[in-house]
Design a protein around this nucleic acid. Sequence first.
DNA 1: CTTCAGGTACGATGCAAGTCGTACCTGAAG
DNA 2: CTTCAGGTACGACTTGCATCGTACCTGAAG
Lengths: 111, 111
Amino acid sequence: MAGRNLVGPEADALDLGAVFRALADEHRRSVMTELAADRSDSERGCNSFDLPISKQTQTHHFRVLREAGLIDEIDYGNRKGIRLRRTDIEKRFPGLLALLGEEPPGDTAPR
Amino acid sequence: MAGRNLVGPEADALDLGAVFRALADEHRRSVMTELAADRSDSERGCNSFDLPISKQTQTHHFRVLREAGLIDEIDYGNRKGIRLRRTDIEKRFPGLLALLGEEPPGDTAPR
DNA sequence: CTTCAGGTACGATGCAAGTCGTACCTGAAG
DNA sequence: CTTCAGGTACGACTTGCATCGTACCTGAAG
């Protein structure tokens, strides 16, 4: 469990309702789709997704994703890292991340 | 495409966002979990789920599921039949229905 | 030290959605 | 015909949530 100082639920405690609610939002789903597409699972800066929303709203969305157990947030003080919890997700909900790839890219426009 | 007089989107037009939004609600997810568990895919009456909500709200939820492309609603005039669109769902989002079985039964309490 | 960019906390706002009350429709059974 | 259960339509209410404004914190660079 290295590099996870802003913690979400454990792998066994992932709630399907929270996951679906998290993925119901277009912006959060676009983030997850990008993360799922990168098989290297490298840590990313949270402004590397260029979401068309304010900083405060981005903070809110990343918090929702973390509390759903989908990502880790690594706090560096004045910046933050994002990493997909691929193994935990695949363990609890196998095939979920593959579904995100089924969505045609470019459909991530707000509403 | 027999027995589908209240139609939702075609199989190719299923929207992942609409699906996740539909499955984000506990009541709708409990319906889908029951339907997914029955491999015979027999048609069911829409009061066979004993949801702890009023008739009007049930109508609303079944409409959302239909418009998301997850179920068919067969109108008999004074009653209604519900059938899971398993093949369409599996074609567009393979593995999605299996995820619903990952949820422990009895977690379908409201809120 | 000051400055500045990245990020968070708190509150307010606006809109979407879940819920139900009332009224109405439909078809089957008396 | 009347009665009744199942279902819908419309509207109202309430909650949840996405969004942003303001203020504040953190760490790095001058």
